[in-house]
Each structure stands twice: as C-alpha cells, then as structure tokens.
Design a binder for these strands. Structure first.
Length: 491
RNA sequence: GCCAAGGUGGCAGAGUCUGGUCAGACGCAGCGGCCUGCAGAGCCGCCCGACGCCGGUUCAAAUCCGGCCCUUGGCUCCA
C-alpha cells in the first residue's frame, strides 16, 4: 500500500514517489504580522505530511522559508518606537512566528531560510535567467519574459494573453508583455506601495525599505524569485514536494516554475500540494479582511491539541470552515481521545492488569484501528478518516475498561501504543504531555480534597460534596465518580 | 470578463477517476436505555434522512455528457 496524493499539476490522484530522502519545500510566511489560523493550517498539513512520510520510513528534508523583505513589512516601520527599519519589524514577527510554530507542536524544519540571507543567490539566479534569454533588464529592474517560457500558465491553466497586467502602472510601462513579472525591482519601496499597505497612520518619512547592490543598481528582489532561490539553495534543483496555500497557485507558484525550470532546465517540483483556505463566515481568513484569529490567541483559548484536532477534521486540499460548531466538534473529539487514553493508561498501570488476561475484541480493535488509520493516511492524507479510526478504538478501550477486571495488559498496552504512535507521532497530538507545574504535588492535594469529599458523601452531605467538586472544576480539575471511587484529570 | 476549486442528511465530512453492491465510518446536535444520590464520563440502542437545477446517454447515474444557477479562491500583497 502506498501513499496517494492529489497533485495540482495534473489535478489527479497520483502515487507519491521519491528516491531516498524526500525534499519538502513549504512556501512560508511574510512576517508582517502575527500568524493566524489560516497560515497555521498550511503548517499543520505540511507537518503531518512530514510526520507521515517519516512514519513510512522516508528521511524528510523539510525547508520552509521566511519572507522578511516585503512592502507590507516596510509599511509598518515607525509603528512602534523600536521599529526603525524593515529588519526590525521582520525580526519581531519572525520571532512570533517561530514561537507560534513551537506552540503548534510542529516538527522543526531543516532550515527556515530568510530572503535577507539569500540576496546573492537571488542575484545569481536572475543573472542566469538573463544569460539564457528568459529575462531582461529595464530601467534598473529585471523582468521575466513569459513569452519565452512555453509552459507558462500550465499549473493554473492560465493563458498569458488573457491575463491582466501584473504590477503597478509605472512597472507596466517598463515591461515587454503585460504578464511579465519582476525578478528585481530598482530602488526601494515606492511611497504609494508603502501607503497602500500601511495599516495605521504614523508620522515621519515614508519608509522605503532595505536595498541591496546588484549588477542593475540598487534594488530589491522580486517576491517570486525568492522562493526559487531559497529552495534551490537548500534542496537542489528538483523538489519532491512543493506545498503552499491554494491562493498561491497563481501567480506565485506559476512564476516559481517558470524561473526555476528556465534556469536549471530541470523539473522544479515532482508533486505540488495545495492546501485549501480556511474560511471564517464564508470568507477566506485573511489579515487584510481582518477576520482572523491569531495563532497565539487560538492556542490560549483552545490549546494546541484542539487546534490540531480541528485541522484534522478536513482534507488538506479542501476548504475548511471555522465556526463555533466545528470548533466544538474538535473539542469533543480531542476530549474523547485524551480521556480514553488516560483511562487506558490508568487501567494498564493498575494492579488489575494481568499478563494472562486476553480480550480478543480489544486486540482486534487495535489491529483494525491501525489498518484503517494507515489506509486513510495513504488515501490522500484523509485525516478525518484517520482520526475516525482512533475514535473507533476509543470505543473498544472504554468497553474493555468498563467491562470489569482483570484487564488485558497486552491489549491495553497495544492500544496505548497505537494512540501514541498514530495520534501522537503522526497527528502530533499530545497524549502523554502533561502541563507544567508540580503535577505530583497537585495530584496529592486533589487526592486530599477527594478524601474529604468522599467522607461527606458517605455522611450523606451531597451538597457539600458537590461544592467541593465544583470548586475543583473551577481550578481545572475534572472529577468523575466511578465504581472504584472518584478519579480526576487536569483540564 | 478570464482561470480554478466546490455545491451530498440538522451540522461536519467520505464516496465521483473504475455507473448498479451501504449515499459508508467517526464526531457533534436530537431521542431512549444502562450506570449514578445528582452530575459528568462511559456503554447500548434509535429516529430522521441529503447527492444545487434542467436536460441527455443507459436496463441502471451522486458517479458519464451538455447547459444553467450558486459559493469560495486566483487574475493586485496573500498560506
């Protein structure tokens, strides 16, 4: 059984193939603001692909760029006192981006290359393109001539002749064809562009952003060429997988293909995977619309596991709706998974777990869950079905734990391992992660309160017992009465 | 206007490539039961019932063909 993915190039399900290491390039963030849940959706799906390929035995070389040169970044200079240059703003949000990524429990990429580190490579690439006749200099800027590249438009199925012109009016007059795009822009950020992207009015001179020397004079790299240069620098001419948001298909990825293929003469990416957009109230979540939820806020409010469970509720290639209902569903799903995991671990470590007890139903359920999970993952990374396989396993585990003692040690251990390997390692859910603080002491204190509560219950003082339970819930301790007395878990 | 993705039960979301076998699994919402001092969790069971619209092909269409409507995205910075 092998992995099948939906490739944007052919729009067909194709078998995933790679020789040895898998090179994975993800079009990363422009660091002009805190990342929001839309950006994180791409990160999540790239992360799960990374994790699944690792599970299948591939060594994954994952590179995700940081775009730290951009008009939107420049436009925020001066908004805070410490933001005196484009670089200051970029560094602030690069830091918050990394923090968000860690908070989302993403596997680290091999490198997070930044544009500011790769200007020499970008200039080399542009010179190569000029040398091969694919690009031309005009007024200190350099443009890619789309008429020289026969396959231009095949990824997005666009006809260059039908396209509206790219770039602003001043730029258009410098170009041979309306659809030509900039590889290098002369000078700094124009005042018009800076103003357009500015969110807030602020005093002082309009910032023009950083500039670099080049064979064509001072200027700034074009957006599309950055990704071509950074991916080639770190992963070579041909990528196994190129991922990005669906909104980048045109022009960004189309242009990347043109630049890289023209420069190297080789296929740029074997597989293109595009992640559908996150919708909020029927619209794309976007900083410019303002309907966004930042990653730090979402992590505070929901926790990383609910956020990840939410993302696992829809296929990467589909759009996904963020609503109260879909969030509530994710909360329920994660609660059910983690609760069951805790119960299984509890039963496993109890004296009632015996080496010779055997529950064929439980063991069969574990095997079925593993098989279903793997089949779902290989079927174009169907995360909702994969999650469903784990949820089906919760049923068998709960039935076993409810079914009295002795417990089937081996069966429970296999179930726990399945949760950890499939839910934990592959989906990145934190089954065995416990919050910080002195958990042991907290546990002892909770036990103490529970002893008091038990005494009250035995005395028939249920009001008092319920008060204690409510009080514990308020500080984040959930009490559940069972046949063997009360148990608790930290929320 | 051009390009792309999509429209499936109350929600969410598979299935469309390979026309018929279950419009499937899981979860949420709803109902009943077990358990329980109550609650929660858990378990068992259940109702309901959807393939955007109009044609065509076919013994048979969610699935193939044609037309139309609607939604979202891209064509300008965008994950």
């Amino acid at each position: 059984m092998s992995l099948v993915v939906t490739d944007t190039q052919s729009d067909e399900r194709v078998e995933f193939t790679a020789d040895g290491d898998v090179t994975l390039y993800v079009c990363g963030l422009t660091v002009s603001d805190d990342p929001h849940l839309g950006h994180a959706r791409l990160w999540f799906h790239a992360d799960v692909l990374h994790r699944w390929l690792a599970y299948l035995g591939y060594d994954v070389r994952h590179v995700e760029n940081v775009t730290d040169v951009n008009e939107k970044i420049t436009a925020r200079v001066g908004e805070r006192d410490e933001w005196t240059a484009e670089r200051d703003v970029a560094e602030t949000f690069t830091a918050s981006t990394f923090e968000a990524m860690r908070g989302l429990n993403l596997l680290r990429a091999e490198v997070y290359p930044r544009v500011t580190e790769h200007v020499p490579e970008i200039i080399d690439l542009v010179e190569t393109l000029i040398g091969k006749g694919y690009a031309y200099e005009s007024n200190g800027s350099v443009y890619f001539d789309v008429t020289r590249f026969d396959d231009y438009g095949t990824l997005s199925n666009q006809d260059p002749a039908e396209l509206e012109a790219q770039g602003d009016p001043a730029e258009r007059s410098e170009k041979r064809n309306p659809a030509d795009f900039a590889l290098w822009k002369s000078g700094g950020v124009s005042e018009a562009a800076a103003r357009e992207h500015a969110k807030h009015d602020h005093c002082g001179a309009t910032p023009s952003g950083e500039r670099w020397d080049s064979p064509w004079g001072e200027g700034r790299p074009g957006w599309h060429v950055e990704c071509s240069a950074m991916s080639t620098t770190h992963l070579g001419d041909t990528l196994d997988v190129h991922m990005g948001g669906r909104d980048l298909v045109f022009p960004h990825h189309e242009n990347e293909i043109a630049q890289s293929t023209a420069a190297t003469g080789r296929e740029f990416a074997r597989h293109w995977l595009h992640v559908g957009l996150l919708e909020m109230e029927g619209e794309k979540m976007s900083s410019s619309i303002g309907n966004y939820w930042t990653v730090p806020d979402a992590l505070d409010e929901l926790g990383v596991d609910v956020v990840r469970t939410f993302y696992a509720g829809a296929a990467y290639r589909s759009e996904q709706a963020l609503t109260e209902d879909t969030i509530a569903e994710a909360e329920e799903r994660w609660d059910r998974l983690s609760r069951t995991y805790d119960r299984a671990v509890g039963a496993l470590d109890a004296v009632d777990a015996r080496s010779k007890a055997e529950d064929e139903t439980l063991r069969g359920a574990v095997e079925t869950a593993r098989a279903d999970f793997e089949a779902a993952m290989n079927d174009d990374l169907n995360l909702r079905e994969a999650t469903a396989a784990l949820l089906t396993l919760t049923d068998a585990v709960n039935r076993h734990v409810d079914g009295g003692t002795p417990h089937d040690y081996r069966g429970l251990r296999d179930a726990v391992t399945a949760f950890e390997e499939l839910g934990g390692d592959v989906l990145g859910l934190g089954f065995d992660v416990r919050d910080g603080g002195d958990v042991e002491l907290a546990g002892e204190l909770v036990e103490l309160v529970l002893d008091v509560r038990e005494a009250e219950r035995e005395a028939g003082n249920y009001d008092r017992a319920d008060q204690l339970r409510d009080a514990l819930r308020e500080v984040g301790v959930e009490i559940e009465d069972g046949p063997d007395g009360a148990s608790y878990r930290f929320e």
